[in-house]
Design a protein around this nucleic acid. Structure first.
Length: 396
DNA sequence: CCTCCACTGGAAACCTAGGCTC
DNA sequence: GAGCCTAGGTTTCCAGTGGAGG
């Protein structure tokens, strides 16, 4: 027992020769220079600069696909802004609206960044959205805060209505003498269509587009990053090239490329290798794919999991009606409340956007219209994840 | 060219949990 | 502690709809 533990630790110590600064590859790491994003960085800085003189900057929207540097640029500039702030009134907050979950929780996260009075704290549930908003505005006003609010994946805040954003963009009087400026980040280019004209005109005062990185740019970014993260000579050029090529095929996603680099380093370490070779990189690419699916599956609500299980009974694909019948059987057997078909149809659409299954509307003429549904999770992964779910275990 | 299936997806009503007020 | 209020999830209701078969 203790021998095997020693073995693991020894291996890790030996493998440590590969990494020099593993943190440089973590998602939170913000480099002191963002290559190929100079113009966007300057743009954002330009727009936000009035805050240093105590006046309210324009709201700002950043657009671009995932991993094109939007979040990095925003956090980079906002961080600089805070360190240069002589007015001591600037407060910055970063909230990812998708990770926050609901509109309410997004507001609660914003409040966390502010010095809320004891009686103004935000409980987990129970308040109305307008009550939460006005508590936030009151705090900004009372402490004369100049809030720079970065809302990542802002499209998730507008799923039903843009009411909250409207309030935030028109909060001028409620927050005086403080103010609040929104830096919205979206990777959905159609997001603007869901905004009413009144919100769009003030939120979209300034817009900055982030194009995907080319393979050459990715390679250069990776080279720069490996110099910080790995010891010299442990990562050959061919591995970096492969990593850049893999990421470029995924619409130039730099975050993914850097993740792969980190995981490849871990893989090589665990295998006790002396360098991060192409084989480790390929393994890393697969592992990231698998892990993403597992995390998504794991965090799914019970009902959604049952629909996935029902879909797994049809390896060749199925349609809504058939899937629903199977789902009903499974739900009854495990004595879980049975949802209506309308709701199940909605959940299928949600699972589709999560990429766990593929649902395409097809018309079969006389036989009506339905969704052709195909599960994208393989059996092994499914069993591994659903396996820990005690309630679902009963029915296997 | 028309029908009519098997749904889709919008809208509104309903339900539940939990904080607030008095 | 009763009664009120709201967010978020769900149900109910229903007006569409693309295209194979007639």
């Amino acid at each position: 027992m203790s021998d095997s533990v020693d073995a693991i630790f020894n291996k890790t110590k030996k493998g440590k020769a590969l990494f020099q600064n593993r943190n440089a590859l973590s998602t939170e790491f913000v480099p002191d220079h963002l290559p190929f994003r100079e113009s966007q960085t300057e743009n954002v800085a330009q727009v936000l600069s009035p805050a240093l003189l105590g006046s309210k900057p324009s709201n700002l929207l950043l657009y671009g696909k995932t991993g094109t540097g939007k979040t990095a640029v925003a956090t980079f500039v906002v961080h600089k802004l805070r360190t240069q702030d002589d007015t001591k009134q600037i407060v910055t907050a970063y909230v990812n609206c998708r990770l926050a979950g609901t509109e309410y929780l997004t507001l609660a996260r914003i409040a966390e960044a502010l010095p809320m009075d004891k009686d103004k704290r935000i409980p987990l549930t129970g308040l109305s959205l307008s009550e939460v908003s006005s508590r936030i505005f009151d705090t900004i006003s009372k402490h004369a805060i100049h809030l720079i609010l970065v809302l990542d994946e802002i499209d998730y805040l507008v799923e039903s209505t843009d009411e909250t954003l409207y309030k935030f963009t028109r909060s001028g009087e409620d927050t005086a003498p403080g103010f609040l400026t929104i830096v919205g980040i979206s990777n959905d280019l159609r997001f603007k269509e869901r905004l009413g004209a009144r919100v769009l005109s003030s939120l979209g005062e300034e817009e900055i587009i982030f194009p995907p990185y080319t393979m050459e740019e990715l390679r250069s970014i990776l080279e720069e990053r490996t110099k910080i993260a790995f010891r010299a000579g442990v990562i050959p050029q061919s591995t970096i090239n492969l990593c850049a090529a893999l990421a470029a095929s995924e619409h130039g996603d730099a975050r993914r490329a850097i993740d792969m680099l980190r995981v490849a380093g871990d893989v090589a370490e665990r295998d006790g290798r002396q360098s991060v070779d192409e084989d480790s990189m390929r393994k890393a690419s697969e592992k990231i794919e698998r892990d993403a699916v597992e995390v998504a599956l794991h965090s799914l609500p019970l009902q959604n999991k049952m629909i996935i299980i029902a879909a797994s009974k049809f390896p060749g694909g199925t349609n809504t009606g058939e899937l629903y019948l199977t789902y009903v059987n499974i739900a009854k057997k495990s004595s879980v409340e049975v949802l209506t078909q309308r709701r199940v149809s909605g959940i299928i659409a949600e699972l589709d956007t999560l990429g766990l299954l593929e649902a395409a509307i097809v018309s079969k003429g006389r036989k009506g219209r339905t969704k052709r549904i195909k599960l994208l999770v393989d059996d092994d992964t499914l069993r591994r994840v659903i396996g820990d779910d005690a309630e679902l275990l009963e029915l296997h």
